[in-house]
């Protein structure tokens, strides 16, 4: 396995969603994010608001996921050379975060959590972060894309 060898093309899913249906789905998700962002923590409504999409993603991710249990093609598996930079990026991020976490005051040493809290100080910011969280889950666990 040589480093940086071109990988097998992954392609895109052949089927294309209907544009109107997609727009309605996006709008519905936006409304859901906005509504959920207005709920207070430590209450039953927000518990349900977070648990519901998590459960949907969980079911969709595990339902009929047999094809995803097939190991990726050798060309799509990381080598020491092309995988190490990603490990380094996440390692550096974790180290920098840890350094900020043990330092004080927090204002001078912001952590990712404290920055997220700042962003969530407004309804719009909270809704945006909630949408990003949903997109992350959908993209990671549900979205069917041709795999190499």
């Amino acid at each position: 396995m040589s480093a940086h060898r071109p990988l097998a093309p992954t392609g895109r899913a052949q089927r294309r969603a209907h544009p109107i249906r997609s727009a309605v789905a996006v709008a519905a998700c936006g409304v859901y994010c906005w509504a959920t962002a207005g709920l207070r923590p430590f209450t039953v409504p927000i518990d349900v608001g977070v648990a519901l999409p998590a459960a949907v993603v969980g079911v969709l991710a595990l339902w009929g996921s047999g094809d995803r249990d097939v190991p990726p093609a050798a060309e799509n598996q990381p080598t020491l050379r092309n995988g190490a930079p990603w490990v380094a990026v996440f390692g550096l991020l974790a180290a920098w975060e840890a350094l900020a976490y043990v330092s004080s005051p927090r204002r001078n040493h912001p952590t990712l959590s404290s920055m997220a809290n700042t962003a969530m100080g407004t309804h719009a910011g909270r809704a945006a972060l909630f949408a990003i969280w949903l997109l992350l889950g959908w993209g990671l666990f549900v979205r069917h894309e041709a795999r190499g």
Partner: peptide
Amino acid sequence: FLLGWAWLGWHLFARGNATFPG
């Protein structure tokens, strides 16, 4: 990873301590 993602959402939104309108 699914459990980690779900925990993140729970931690940030259901048990978060940010101030927000509502």
